[in-house]
Amino acid sequence: MATPAKDPGHVRRRGHRRRGAEPARTDPPGAEPAASPDSATELARDLESGHPGWVILWRRWARRYWAFPLWIANAPEPIEAGHVQDLLAQMSDIELQHSPPATNG
């Protein structure tokens, strides 16, 4: 008797993987490898200190960055991205649409 995992005619439901198998990659082709959770958290802190008016978090469980613009009273949903370059591009778009306050530096 063939087991489902060894039966060539067995079709595994979409989204299910063999026990012990690595999860499928969802990053676009050519994307840089995901940062380790600790380095991603540190990078989020560095980004936040370099971008006043923003709160930037690394969502470890989702492996994504979140950014919140603090100067917009009726702020839209937080922006999110899997890679820093994507996050910075979205932050620039928000800053162009809603000019951030001037910083005293």
Rank of each mutant, 00 (worst) to 15 (best):
W66Y: 11
N74H: 04
A75K: 00
Q90L: 12
D86F: 14
E77N: 04
S92G: 10
W66V: 09
I72Q: 04
H83A: 13
L70K: 08
E77K: 01
D93P: 14
S92N: 07
E80Y: 06
I79V: 14
V84M: 02
L70D: 10
H98C: 10
P69E: 07
E77A: 10
P69S: 02
A67G: 07
R60A: 11
E95Y: 04
Y65H: 01
P69L: 01
P76T: 07
W66C: 11
P69C: 02
F68K: 01
P78F: 00
F68W: 02
F68H: 02
E77V: 09
V84Y: 04
D93H: 06
H98Y: 10
P101L: 15
P76L: 13
V84F: 02
P69M: 01
L88D: 10
L70E: 13
S99K: 11
V84Q: 07
A73K: 08
I94K: 00
W71N: 04
E95M: 09
N74V: 02
N74W: 05
D93S: 05
F68L: 11
D93A: 05
L88C: 05
R60D: 13
P69V: 13
H83I: 00
F68C: 02
A62G: 07
E95Q: 06
M91P: 01
W71D: 06
A62S: 09
W61L: 15
I79W: 07
Q97L: 11
E77H: 02
R63M: 13
W71T: 15
A75W: 08
P76Q: 07
G82R: 12
P69F: 00
H98I: 09
R63Y: 11
L88T: 06
E77S: 05
A81K: 03
V84D: 03
A67M: 10
W66Q: 07
E80L: 00
P101W: 05
E80I: 00
L88N: 02
R64H: 15
P101E: 15
Q90N: 12
D86V: 15
S92L: 07
Q90P: 06
A89K: 09
L96Q: 03
M91A: 13
M91S: 09
I79R: 03
G82F: 03
E80M: 01
S92E: 14
W61F: 12
S99T: 12
I72K: 06
G82L: 12
R59Q: 14
P69G: 05
W61S: 15
W66I: 07
R60E: 15
E95T: 13
S99A: 10
S99N: 05
R60W: 08
L96H: 02
R64Q: 13
A81Q: 09
A81T: 13
P76H: 09
L70H: 06
E95W: 01
P100M: 09
